[in-house]
């Protein structure tokens, strides 16, 4: 639950300072991100929200929310997630009563009141997900100096570079690949190694992960088999938790995916018909012209 930007990122920050001073000279000597060994490509998972007709699996989002709430949210914030979102269409779709009850379990700081004092009150659906820490410095102090990234758009902030020629296919119908962040998170949850491989020395608090750039991650292995008690009979395994929470994070990052794909399907049909009509009209108009 503790995460940290890798040594690579720290090196990159120092590199950034250089960049400020002389941007172009260092563009020519940009360092590779990985320090110890090259991270493998995260294996693609089977996602309900992938593809032309993809949409979120409501039960999976509900389980994923449970994992997020019981595990991730102890350290990670999700500032753009409001309680009300959990009841909105295309999401976990809890009932509004469930969301009201859930929000009420949290204390939200509000105010100032008429006397000018800040006060705490039970949460309401319109409130945003409360942060586990008051500010970034407090989060760092509690996590050995590492700042757990905000999870609101995390699944869209992580990509997979498969290189040429795969990146071309990733744009095409049938091969489209927009689930990279979710695949990466699943791989990361599964990528921990109890002992670092030979030749890799970990500093205090660091953990070895195959899929993290640079392999040295401050977040200890957050999920293991049997950790979260599901109530819908889904397997209580690390792989299942990882998939469910990744799907949930994809939803927090892209909550309008369902309506987007549904709309897109209709838009393409209308445009195809329109193009056909235009083409037929054009043929008629040009029929008498030798061209």
């Amino acid at each position: 639950m503790i995460s940290k930007t890798s040594l690579g990122m720290i090196a990159a920050a120092m590199f950034g300072a250089t960049l400020f001073a002389a941007p172009i000279s260092c563009l020519a000597e940009e360092p590779a991100a990985a320090t110890s060994h090259v991270a493998p490509i995260p294996p693609p998972q089977d996602w309900s929200f992938a593809g032309f007709f993809g949409k979120y699996d409501q039960a999976q989002l509900q389980r994923g929310f449970q994992v997020f709430r019981e595990v991730c949210s102890n350290c990670h914030s999700a500032d753009h997630l409001a309680f009300r979102n959990l009841a909105e269409p295309g999401g976990p779709e809890f009932s509004i009563e469930q969301v009201k009850a859930l929000a009420a379990q949290y204390k939200i700081k509000d105010g100032p009141n008429d006397a000018g004092d800040m006060f705490e009150r039970p949460g309401r659906p319109s409130d945003y997900w409360p942060s586990p820490f008051a500010n970034a410095n407090q989060a760092r102090t509690a996590n050995s100096g590492a700042l757990p990234p905000d999870m609101s758009v995390l699944a869209k902030a992580r990509g997979i570079k498969r290189g040429f020629p795969w990146f071309i296919f990733e744009a095409l119908p049938g091969f489209a690949y927009q689930e990279q962040g979710a695949d990466y998170i699943v791989a990361l949850m599964n990528g921990y190694e109890d002992d670092a491989p030979k030749g890799v020395t970990l500093d205090a608090g660091q953990n070895f992960n195959h899929y993290f750039p640079g392999n040295k991650l401050m977040m200890p292995k957050p999920l293991s088999d049997g950790q979260v008690a599901y109530t819908d009979g889904a397997p209580q395994t690390l792989q299942q938790y990882a998939k469910d929470v990744s799907a949930f994070l994809m939803w927090t990052a892209e909550p309008k995916l369902d309506v987007r794909k549904k709309t897109g399907f209709r838009v393409l049909i209308v445009l195809a018909i329109l193009a056909g009509l235009f083409y037929a009209t054009k043929k008629r108009i040009w029929a008498d012209v030798q061209h």
């Binding site: 869209k156 119908p173 927009q178 794909k261 897109g264």
Partner: peptide
């Protein structure tokens, strides 16, 4: 097609 099915293909994940 890009807007509705691969809207983030042309962007960089780092910009999130």
């Amino acid at each position: 097609w890009f807007v509705f099915f691969v809207p983030n293909y042309l962007g960089d994940p780092d910009n999130y």
